[in-house]
């Protein structure tokens, strides 16, 4: 694959040039942390970050997304009919997404874009997006991406991999989409610079490793009934921080809201940590306690997903849930517990 050298002094100019063809999204600092937002004309992404507070999933899958509109005004011909909202699906480019967040989209894709179901909103947004990732030269101590099928220079899920090399970026072209974006910006100085050494250096800085090799051979019900869940779940507050900050959590809830005679049907992120998530109309809740809910989160990510897709865990090792959890519940420790679990006689927790 080609590598293009982009001088940092040509960065703003190139983005400006490409901005006629793309809506740009990038990390911007606000209130002491970075998050992704749509960049205004001329606004530059701020790459002075280790990772954004929240993941980039909201660019494709917003926390609140209008799906349908309707009118309750009987004078209108199409009253009480759900009409799909017209969305801006002009090409967009996400600048500076970390490889972990980009590869998370591939895991999420299994839910939103599969042979049985294609979610029109997610698919349109995803397909219109070019992902120009920024390699992680200095991974955090809480990142364990290399244990989660990813890595600081991982290319899957990306269209371009940018590597910060001091006064310039090295842009590795991964897909045709990526090549087009670089061309639109007028960046075309091919170089034979090698990013392998930088990649090795970054990978060697990963200090956190999590064994996942035995998860698929564990018996689901034995793990489900393991005694350690009581202890593991004790501290949990059942807030939604882990799920909302997670780039691979995809659950949502659909709500109608109307004002006057017009209304919308929208979806909002939901969280398996909330009691309401599984509450039945009858009042029964199959996941009625904290232990049920904590177990579900980890079993889904580290066992059900592993079994269902046969392609590793539903986690990219970005470490956000570890860093943001108010009570320090650490997925690495839980994964270790699950991976090394051997049932003992009488060991049961229902």
């Amino acid at each position: 694959m080609k590598v293009i050298k982009i001088d940092k002094k040509d960065w703003a100019g190139g983005l400006d040039k490409a901005s006629s063809g793309y809506r740009f999204f990038g990390p911007v600092e606000d209130k002491e942390c970075h998050n992704f937002k749509e960049l205004d004309k001329g606004e530059l992404p701020d790459f002075n970050f280790s990772n954004t507070r929240l993941s980039a999933k909201s660019v494709v899958f917003p926390q609140t997304e209008a799906m349908f509109e309707y009118s309750l005004d009987e004078n209108e011909a199409d009253h009480h009919l759900m009409k799909e909202c017209r969305k801006n699906d002009a090409p967009r480019a996400v600048l500076g997404i970390r490889p972990c967040d980009a590869s998370a989209f591939l895991l999420v894709k299994r839910n939103f874009d599969n042979p049985e179901y294609r979610d029109p909103w997610w698919v349109k947004a995803y397909e219109s997006t070019t992902f120009a990732g920024l390699a992680c030269n200095n991974p955090c101590a809480s990142c364990f991406c290399t244990s989660a099928g990813c890595g600081p220079f991982d290319e899957k899920g990306l269209d371009v991999l940018l590597v910060d090399a001091g006064d310039h970026f090295l842009a590795k072209v991964v897909t045709e989409k990526g090549r087009k974006m670089l061309a639109a910006a007028g960046w075309n100085a091919e170089t034979d610079a090698d990013i392998e050494a930088l990649k090795k250096d970054a990978e060697s800085k990963i200090s956190s490793f999590v064994p996942t090799d035995k998860l698929k051979d564990k018996t689901t019900m034995e793990l489900y009934n393991a005694a350690f869940w009581e202890e593991a779940a004790f501290a949990c507050l059942n807030c939604g921080t882990c799920t909302y900050s997670c780039p691979t959590c995809w659950c949502f809830d659909i709500q109608d809201e109307s004002k006057g005679k017009s209304g919308i049907r929208m979806r909002n992120w939901d969280s398996c940590m909330y009691p309401l998530f599984t509450l039945h109309g009858s009042g029964h809740n199959p996941r009625g306690t904290k232990i049920h809910r904590v177990r579900q989160r980890f079993m889904h990510k580290l066992k059900y997903y592993v079994d269902k897709y046969g392609d590793g865990i539903q986690c990219v090792g970005c470490g956000r849930c570890i860093r943001l959890c108010p009570v320090n519940i650490d997925i690495r420790k839980i994964c270790e517990k699950m991976n090394s679990y051997e049932p003992k006689a009488g060991d049961c927790n229902r």
Binding site: Q63, G240, T241, Y244
Partner: peptide
């Protein structure tokens, strides 16, 4: 403005 409605404040 930065609130993500995770309810961590309430639950803590």
């Amino acid at each position: 403005s930065a609130c993500i409605r995770c309810y961590a404040c309430r639950n803590a």
